[in-house]
């Protein structure tokens, strides 16, 4: 742990001290193994279409906004720093784009967040369909490394998610577009922030800290969707030494309030999102439920006001997972000082 931290810090410091290009330029043709497909690039793609907000935001972070010809599958507002560039890019669809709307942009790369959009059973299309038309597709490793998307509603991971897969996605996209410097700098920054958050949490940590991540519920009183023990939230808890009270390998299993209340976690992390499919999507409704439900209101976390509000998109395996780790570390600090 400490070694990693030091390395990360060193890398971050290095990146900050020497922002000028130190990494070698990408050598084309570039061959890449990506989620079961072999990709070969003769040159850096001149244009891209993104299917999934996480992929969109990585490309923006790498300064490739000008190359993005279309975006789709939005979960929440774009990060404030990308608002200006995003307004210049066409939004093909809020949700799933149609196959033709993607192809019609003649992109030289399609960057994918979730394989259930473009993948073996993709609702937009299979990757082979794009490859036949000479359009390479790149899927973020966070959705395929050690993950079986055929099991469970949102797939099931065989091993705990790690931000390493996010770093891998950033690095590989940077390599494809020949902006390795920017990729390395971005990864270093993410690692630095993560390490710092872990340090803060360690200082504030108490024994037997546990938590549940409540994403949403199909109806206000109904069993909620909570984070399983292999996804993004599980990683956050693992890194910060918090026990997840949910015992399921699915990404977002449905677990009864009875089980959650009996487990009585130290923290309840609730998702804030712009989606308004269910009443419980609204974070205010979640907080109200916790205060008013005859059982939930009796939980220690509610009584002692240890409810943490976190961006819902941070709970997915994205760059925003780091934001989540920071939010959680801060909550631990606050709870520690309150005590």
């Amino acid at each position: 742990m400490t070694t990693t931290t030091r390395l990360a810090l060193a890398a971050a410091a290095f990146a900050l001290l020497a922002p000028a290009a130190q990494a070698e330029p990408t050598k084309y043709p570039l061959t890449l193994q990506n989620c079961g497909e072999t990709l070969i690039f003769d040159k850096a793609p001149a244009s891209a279409v993104t299917v999934g907000q996480a992929a969109t935001e990585i490309l923006y972070s790498l300064g490739l906004g000008e190359k993005v010809k279309g975006t789709s599958v939005w979960f929440t507002s774009v990060k404030p720093e990308f608002k200006a560039i995003n307004e210049r890019v066409e939004r093909l669809a809020d949700n799933d784009p149609s196959f033709e709307s993607v192809v019609n942009k003649r992109p030289e790369l399609v960057a994918i967040q979730f394989l259930w959009h473009i993948g073996p059973e993709g609702i937009v299309g299979t990757r082979a369909q794009f490859h036949e038309m000479g359009i390479p597709t790149y899927a973020l490793p966070a959705d395929c490394v050690e993950k079986d998307n055929t099991v469970g509603r949102d797939g099931t991971r065989s091993a705990l998610f790690s931000t390493a897969t996010i770093h891998q996605g950033v690095r590989e996209l940077a390599e494809i577009f020949d902006v390795k410097d920017k990729g390395d700098a971005l990864v270093a920054d993410l690692q630095k922030r993560e390490a710092a958050a872990i340090e803060r949490a360690k200082a504030a940590k108490r024994e037997d800290t546990s938590a549940v991540f409540w994403f949403s519920s199909a109806e206000m009183n109904i069993d909620p969707y909570v984070a399983g023990r292999k996804g993004g939230p599980a990683y956050m808890m693992d890194k910060l030494g918090i026990k997840n009270v949910v015992e399921s390998d699915e990404e977002w299993p449905v677990v009864g309030w009875e089980t959650i209340a009996k487990a009585n976690p130290t923290f309840i992390v609730v998702a804030r999102m712009e989606r308004r499919r269910y009443p419980a999507d609204d974070v205010e409704m979640k907080l109200q439920f916790l205060k008013n439900d005859p059982v939930a209101s009796q939980m220690d976390a509610v009584k002692n006001n240890r409810i943490v509000v976190m961006d819902g998109h941070a709970m997915d395996a994205t760059m925003r997972t780091i934001d989540g780790i920071e939010v959680l570390a801060e909550a631990l600090e606050k709870a520690g000082s309150a005590k």
Partner: peptide, 10 residues
Amino acid sequence: KSANAEQARG
């Protein structure tokens, strides 16, 4: 035609 991104979540 739903207005928000679909996460297949239930």
